[in-house]
Design a binder for these strands. Structure first.
Lengths: 139, 139
DNA sequence: CAGAATTATTCGAGACTCGAAGCAAAGGTA
DNA sequence: TACCTTTGCTTCGAGTCTCGAATAATTCTG
C-alpha cells in the first residue's frame, strides 16, 4: 500500500463523520444537543443492556470525568437516568428515558438521511462494512 | 440498504479516526500538540499552495474565529507563520515553518503506523478509497 | 480482616467553539 | 473620485469540552 493512499483514507474517514455531523446541525440545535451530548446519546443503544460509565467512556474515547460531565448534561435534559448496577454497586449504568429514546431515534434518522454514506447502494455498503469491520474488530 | 448497516458504517468511520488519534497520543504529547492543533497541522500540506484561513477552516469543519485561535497556537509553537496573500491582501495564508514540516511529517508517520487501516492490504485499501471517494467527491 | 484495585465523582485549570462586533481590503456603481 | 456592499480575518465574551489529581464508595485478594 502506498503511504499517500493511506493518508487519504484516514482523512476520508474523518471527513465522512464530520460531514454527517455538520448536516444534522439543525436537528441537533432543535433538541439543544451539543456535539458531545449527541455522541453520547447515539452511543446508548436502547436495545442493549444499559452501559456503565466505564463502558460508555471507552466507546466515546473519553475519560471518566469527561463522561460524568456529559452524562449530567443528558440527565439535566431528561434524556437519561443513572441507575446503580445491582451486580456491582460501584458502577452506574445509563438508561435512556422515553424522551431520550425518542430524541435518539430522531437524530439518528436525520443522520441516516444526511450522511454522505447514504449515496452507497446495498452492495457498496456491504463492501464498506466488510472492510471497516475487518479493521476494527479484534482478530 | 438496511438502516442498521448504515448506522454501523457511520460509527465505524468515526471509530477509525478516533482510534488513530488515540494511538498517536504519546507522539502528540511529545510535541505538545493538542487535538485541534494536530488536525490543523495535518491539514496543511507543504506540497500544496499554502491555504488561506477560509480554505483551512472549511477543511477542518470549523468557523473563522476558531481557526484564528488554533492558528495562534501553532504560530506560538513556531510551527506555522502567517503571510499576506499578495493576490488578495485581506487574506492570510498559513505557511509551515521548517519545524512545522518536520513535526507534521513525524505525527503523520506515527498515524500511518498506528491507524487500524494499516491492517488493510493494497487491494483492500484501494477498494476502501474507491468507496469513500465516491461518497465524498462531488459528482 | 487489611491492603490493593476498581468505578465514579468533584474540583480546578486549560483547551475548544461559536456568535456578535469591528477592521481593512476588494469590488461595484455612479 | 466618492460611496456602498461584500469579503476575509481578528477580537471579545460566553459557554462547552477535556483532562489530571484528589476523593469516596465498593469490590477483590491474600
Amino acid at each position: 500500500m502506498s503511504a499517500p493512499d493511506l493518508v487519504t483514507a484516514i482523512v476520508a474517514t474523518y471527513d465522512v463523520w464530520m460531514r454527517t455531523v455538520d448536516e444534522i446541525g439543525p436537528v441537533l440545535a432543535e433538541h439543544r444537543l451539543t456535539p458531545a451530548t449527541f455522541q453520547a446519546l447515539w452511543a446508548i443503544d436502547p436495545d442493549e443492556q444499559p452501559p456503565s460509565m466505564k463502558a460508555l467512556a471507552g466507546r466515546l474515547h473519553c475519560n471518566a470525568p469527561n463522561l460524568t460531565f456529559v452524562s449530567n448534561q443528558l440527565a439535566d435534559r431528561g434524556l437519561v437516568e443513572r441507575a446503580v448496577d445491582p451486580a456491582d454497586r460501584r458502577s452506574r449504568v445509563l438508561v435512556l428515558t422515553a424522551k431520550g429514546r425518542q430524541v435518539r431515534a430522531e437524530v439518528i434518522r436525520a443522520a441516516l438521511e444526511k450522511t454522505p454514506l447514504a449515496a452507497l447502494d446495498d452492495g457498496e455498503l456491504r463492501q464498506l462494512l466488510t472492510l471497516l469491520n475487518r479493521v476494527l474488530l479484534p482478530g
